[in-house]
Computed example of a mutant assay.
Amino acid sequence: MTESGSMRAAVLSGRGQLTIDEHPLPRLRPDYVRIRVDVAGICGSDVSEFRHGPLLAPLESRHRITGHLGPLVLGHEFSGTVAAVGAEAAGVQIGWSVVSAASASCGHCSACRSGNGNRCPDYWAVGLQQDGGLAEYCDVPAGLCVPYDAAVLTADTAALAQPMAIAVHSMKQANISAGTRVAIVGIGGVGAFLLAAVNHLTDVAHILALDPAPDRRLVARTLGATETAGGDVDHEPDVDVVYEMSGTVAGLESAARLTRPGGTIVLTGLQNPDAVIGALLRDITLREITITGAKACVPADDMPDALAVLASRSDWSSVAPEVFALDRLRGLLDGSDQPDAAGIKLLFDPRARASRPATHGL
Results as ranks from 00 to 15, higher is better:
residue 26 P to L: 07
residue 252 L to V: 06
residue 11 V to Y: 06
residue 116 N to Y: 08
residue 105 S to A: 15
residue 60 E to H: 11
residue 345 K to R: 11
residue 190 V to E: 01
residue 273 P to N: 05
residue 287 R to V: 02
residue 72 L to C: 07
residue 148 Y to C: 01
residue 229 A to F: 09
residue 34 R to L: 09
residue 139 D to M: 12
residue 25 L to M: 15
residue 208 L to W: 02
residue 8 R to T: 12
residue 191 G to I: 04
residue 265 I to C: 06
residue 70 G to P: 05
residue 253 E to M: 07
residue 53 G to W: 06
residue 51 R to K: 12
residue 41 G to W: 00
residue 221 R to V: 10
residue 116 N to A: 08
residue 248 T to C: 05
residue 245 M to C: 13
residue 65 I to K: 06
residue 74 L to Y: 05
residue 92 V to Q: 02
residue 309 V to P: 00
residue 96 W to N: 04
residue 58 P to F: 00
residue 55 L to W: 08
residue 193 F to N: 10
residue 20 I to H: 08
residue 59 L to I: 14
residue 248 T to N: 05
residue 274 D to N: 12
residue 272 N to D: 15
residue 72 L to D: 07
residue 5 G to P: 04
residue 148 Y to L: 03
residue 88 E to P: 04
residue 260 R to P: 01
residue 72 L to F: 09
residue 117 G to T: 05
residue 148 Y to T: 02
residue 287 R to C: 03
residue 178 A to G: 13
residue 335 G to Q: 10
residue 197 A to R: 00
residue 238 D to L: 08
residue 8 R to L: 08
residue 76 H to G: 01
residue 254 S to C: 10
residue 210 L to N: 02
residue 16 G to I: 12
residue 31 D to M: 07
residue 127 G to C: 04
residue 91 G to K: 07
residue 24 P to Q: 02
residue 59 L to Y: 06
residue 293 G to L: 14
residue 359 T to C: 03
residue 277 I to A: 13
residue 64 R to M: 10
residue 119 R to Q: 12
residue 246 S to I: 09
residue 92 V to L: 11
residue 3 E to K: 05
residue 160 L to A: 03
residue 305 D to H: 13
residue 266 V to W: 02
residue 90 A to T: 15
residue 19 T to R: 13
residue 359 T to E: 13
residue 237 P to K: 11
residue 109 C to G: 13
residue 182 V to A: 14
residue 234 D to F: 04
residue 196 A to I: 04
residue 300 A to Q: 13
residue 246 S to R: 04
residue 137 Y to M: 07
residue 205 A to Q: 10
residue 239 V to W: 05
residue 175 N to Q: 14
residue 153 L to S: 06
residue 106 C to H: 12
residue 154 T to A: 04
residue 358 A to F: 01
residue 361 G to E: 11
residue 148 Y to F: 15
residue 243 Y to R: 04
